[in-house]
Amino acid sequence: MEFLQPDNLREAFEMRASHPGAAPICGGTDIMVELNFDHRRPEYVLDLTRVPELAEWSRENGGFRVGAGVSYTRIIEELGESLPGLAMASRTVGSPQIRNRGTVGGNLGTASPAGDGLPPLYASDAEVEVASLEGTRRIPVAEFITGPKRNALGDGELITAFHIPEADGPQQYSKIGTRNAMVIAVCAFGLALHPEKGKVGACIGSAAPTPVRTKEAEEFIEGVISESDLWQTRREISGSALRRFGDMVEMSAKPISDVRGTAAYRTRAVGVLARRTLSWAWDEYRGGSR
């Protein structure tokens, strides 16, 4: 196994182009496990930790461009105010050591349905920026992730950043694991309210082959809210509407049973998380803190 260590993005693209099988590594929290367990033997490893461009984030109109190599710890500390949903998800990732190493870019690269960073990206309609010597393209996250552990990254391309709008309303993230920290999601749920647009974004994690947006549930609750003018009046959403929202989220789940949990549990649990996170986000909205 050869270790490639570019010093800048241009060099990284060149190495990626000349070594098509090279495995990009940044935090290494997925790849090192695969190597240690001998599940994968890449001929080349492309170390991106010394590429400064990947570890930067910046403001852009109405949102952020966050480099693929920005760690979860930095997202929590530096972007927690502006991207609360993603920061909440980041706090549930592994241990402090893992959060210091791991990156959202890695979540996108691995494309596991259990990636903690993914549901907030879906709920906020984030876009993934991929680039190569040929140029740069931006892909909506839901199109970028194409299946379990599959994504739309082309030969010669690297994930360079994601673009995400700044929170324009309350956001929530909730994850179930069988222990109370350092656990892979049994299932998860991300939610973002967009009061200005009259929209609700929501996404299930780890209960289908990919993270899934819950379109019908979103439209249902948007209907409930607008029908009774709740965006303006900020009155309570009824318990029955919250429950229906949960039930409809359950309908979008297509989980499997595995060692971490049964399909039945995952289905029911995402419904509970949907109901609870919506009530928390709505309470926050009613409190008018945003």
């Binding site: 019908e216 249902f220 409930v224 649990a269």
Partner: peptide
């Protein structure tokens, strides 16, 4: 512990059943 042994019955929403507002 939560008594979830079986896959829940999936209740499809009925037309117009947005549910009463509080």
């Amino acid at each position: 512990l939560a008594g979830i042994e079986e896959e829940p019955v999936r209740r499809a929403p009925q037309p117009g059943s947005c549910g009463p507002v509080a």
